Computed example of a mutant assay.
Amino acid sequence: MRAVLCKDYGPPESLVLEDIEAPTAGENDVVIQIHNAAVNYPDVLVIQNLYQIKPPLPFSPGGEVSGEVIAAGEKVDTLKVGDRVMAVCGMGGFRDEIALPAAACMPIPDSMDFKIAAAMGLTYGTSYHALKDRAKIQAGETLFIMGASGGVGLAAVELGKAMGARVIAAASSEEKLQVCRDHGADDTLLYKTGGLSPDEQKAFSEEIKTLTGGKGVDVVYDAIGGDYAEPAVRAMAWGGRYLVVGFVAGYIPKIPLNLTLLKGTSLVGVFWGRFNAEQPKDARQNIIELMSMLQDGKIKPHISGVYPLEESAQALTQMAARKVTGKLVIDMGR
């Protein structure tokens, strides 16, 4: 079978496409013939040895997949050959087949497109966990999303609206902001890429406050970090919750803790992978609820590009350049 492999850490163009041995199912596993795999920003980091998870070499990037069960272990009684499934695998998705624990796989209806199934697990799982479990967001509250046009950010836009929040989306271009508006954002804020001077940080904070009539935002969803973090904290309302989701800006910010004291705010970490491992029943229930929202039309994953397996490096290069809105998907050509 074909597999895109990271054999030495480096940029996307260092990946290679090779034929490797097909996997077999352990007693509690299934083998999935992959139809589609989603591209996520952690894929860009892990192949450069810049991510907190460091799989042994060689490995295939690709954290979420969809496809068809082609083999099942002797102790598997929840799935059978021919079942259509989606799974968040963490790693190994850029290949034709993958063996996974049956418990990690979610059946999908015949009406669900494989591309949509591949594109929703990680990003919507992360954002729903962030808003529902960590922020406990309430209808009528204001949600400010940084990096709102990316995979997790755009999922947060849709989910925030579905949960009754007023959504302010921030992104780095008017084109990206239009995508956010198309997916339900009530207001938008344009910010520049790169570092911010102290005056620009102050202006950024004031812009956020102005959009809330001076009250400040109840929940900040931060997938960017960097120079934008502190001014976002300064623009929070009393009792606000600041969701630490990621650091696409390139470095981890240092926030003066006196700001949290003065505003009664909470800094809340969001690590969906750990949540999935520590509370698998809760994580699975969240996915069930997301599937219901999808069927009801409350959410709709935005896929901005589809690449064949042979062009996986090009897809990752686009992701690294932050030119992607929503999700990119790798198509195995089935």
Rank of each mutant, 00 (worst) to 15 (best):
V4S: 01
L5I: 03
C6N: 08
K7S: 13
Y9E: 02
Y9K: 06
P11F: 02
S14L: 10
L15E: 00
L17S: 15
E18S: 14
G26K: 07
E27M: 14
N28Y: 14
D29Y: 10
D29M: 03
I32C: 02
Q33N: 15
Q33R: 15
N40S: 13
N40T: 06
N40G: 11
Y41A: 08
P42H: 06
D43E: 09
V46W: 02
N49W: 04
I53L: 09
K54Y: 05
L57H: 03
V65M: 11
G67S: 08
V69H: 01
E74M: 09
E74D: 12
L79A: 07
M86S: 14
C89D: 11
M91V: 08
G93E: 09
F94W: 14
A99S: 13
P101A: 05
A104H: 09
A118P: 01
G121E: 10
Y124K: 03
S127M: 10
Y128E: 00
A130S: 00
A130F: 03
D133Q: 15
A135Y: 00
A148E: 00
V152T: 09
V152L: 05
G153E: 02
M163P: 04
M163S: 01
R166M: 11
A169T: 01
L177M: 06
Q178T: 10
C180H: 05
H183T: 08
A185P: 05
D187C: 04
L189E: 05
Y191T: 05
K192P: 11
G194E: 10
G194W: 06
L196N: 03
P198R: 06
D199F: 11
Q201S: 11
Q201Y: 07
I208A: 07
I208H: 08
T210E: 13
T212Q: 05
G213W: 07
G214V: 07
G214Y: 01
K215T: 08
V220E: 02
I224Q: 00
Y228L: 06
P231W: 02
A232C: 00
A235T: 03
M236G: 04
L243M: 07
V244Y: 03
V244D: 01
F247S: 09
I252K: 13
P253M: 08
N258T: 13
T260L: 15
L262T: 13
G264H: 04
G264Y: 06
T265M: 08
T265F: 02
V268K: 07
R274L: 14
N276I: 09
A277S: 14
A283H: 05
L290W: 06
Q295P: 07
K298V: 10
I299G: 02
H302V: 00
H302M: 06
S312A: 15
A313K: 10
Q318P: 03
K323D: 12
V329Q: 15
V329S: 12
M332P: 12
G333S: 14
